[in-house]
Simulated assay, not measured.
Amino acid sequence: MALATHTILIADDHPLFRQALKQSLSHGMEAIQWLEADSADAIEQQLQKHPDLDLILLDLQMPGSHGYSTLIHLRSHYPATPVVVISAHEDGQTIAKAAHYGAQGFLPKSAQPQQLISALTQVLEGELCFPDSLTDQNSAADHADIGHKLAELTPQQYRVLQMFAEGLLNKQIAYDLGVSEATIKAHATAIFKKLGVRNRTQAVIALSSLDIDSRPL
């Protein structure tokens, strides 16, 4: 059955995977406008250009993203845009946390094209789609507090926090964002307050707590 026109963003930092995924899905999903992003910052740029995105296919690990941090940010600031996590991590804890942080679905990268098409069609029709193995989401509670705090950051504050994690100085961040150093210091103060930390080191540690420990090749 042909779908109505939809715009879907594939967010993954591996160009070959993005291309292969797009080709696989295109065979069974008609009238789709495909967009791509290779970093958390690129996702934000695509959302600014295409605020009416119908779906984001999100890899949890890419430049500028700390595990679930980008998922949390997207669900907080773009709640009308469904996010489906597609990941090489297929363990129950990863799936449960993705669900806890607001993903509408979870797809393992090992899934067959027809499984992907079926799952995405479900989500586009307003349904949730998770593996049958998802039975317990209690394990996600460990990081719920930092997740809620991170969701309170504005998009600009979130970007500054990402740049803190990259080790950039206030002067460098101010230059890259085209604002004054005083503005960055004000953002930093707000970030520390919202995250309940005292300095940028603690803020980065809090952000890093959302990272995924094991990283498959």
Rank of each mutant, 00 (worst) to 15 (best):
Y68P: 01
S133I: 10
Q112L: 12
K185N: 10
H66A: 14
E125L: 11
K185V: 00
A182G: 09
A98S: 04
G92R: 07
Q112S: 12
A186P: 07
V179T: 01
A203V: 06
H66N: 14
L207T: 00
R75D: 09
Q104L: 14
F106Y: 13
T135N: 08
A103M: 15
A190Q: 12
K193H: 12
I72C: 07
Q137T: 13
Q114M: 15
F164A: 03
R75S: 11
L150I: 09
S69W: 14
Q93L: 12
A206W: 09
Y68S: 05
Y101E: 04
L116R: 02
T154H: 12
K109Y: 03
S118I: 12
T70S: 03
P108E: 04
D145Y: 13
V83Y: 01
T135V: 14
S208L: 09
L168M: 08
A99N: 05
G92S: 12
Y175T: 08
P63E: 10
Y68G: 02
G67R: 06
G105N: 08
K97H: 00
L169T: 15
L161A: 11
A80G: 11
A165R: 01
V179E: 14
P155C: 14
V204R: 12
E166N: 07
C129K: 10
D132V: 15
E90T: 10
V197F: 11
E152K: 10
V179K: 13
L124N: 12
L153V: 04
A206Q: 08
R75Q: 15
V160C: 01
S110C: 08
